[in-house]
């Protein structure tokens, strides 16, 4: 296999793009997608290390991360729908009040 560094480097690039997306985008749904991208980058690092050390536990962790991501998306999108019904917008700059 190629050196692990290649995969970790790619993982770092994808993670940075995700982090940048969370910081600069204003659409709450796109911010959510950027979080998914960051989780995915972390998963790639897990799988690369699992292969490098021949440890199947790394792949199991990816499995658990996927489960947590699915749960997070279900709750997060329900929250976004509720916010949209209250504010008629999912622009995060509009979400500056605690109530209403």
């Amino acid at each position: 296999m190629l050196p692990v560094g290649y995969y970790i480097g790619l993982s770092a690039v994808l993670f940075t793009i995700g982090a940048l997306g969370v910081l600069i985008r204003r659409n709450a749904i796109v911010i959510f997608m950027s979080v998914e991208l960051m989780l995915n980058a972390a998963n790639l690092a897990f799988v690369a290390f699992a292969r490098a050390y021949e440890a199947v536990s790394g792949q199991l962790f990816v499995f658990f991360v996927m489960t947590v991501a699915a749960a997070e998306v279900a709750v997060g999108l329900a929250l976004i729908v509720t916010i949209f019904h209250t504010k008629q917008s999912i622009d995060i700059d509009q979400m500056n009040t605690m109530k209403g």
Binding site: N27, I29, A69, V73, V81, D91
Partner: peptide, 23 residues
């Protein structure tokens, strides 16, 4: 899970809200 379930949920919510464009 990702490409199927999660992204379909995303697309569904985007189209449900009609919130494609943002400032």
């Amino acid at each position: 899970v990702y490409g199927g379930a999660i992204m379909v949920l995303f697309l569904f919510v985007i189209m449900l809200l009609g919130a494609e464009q943002t400032g």
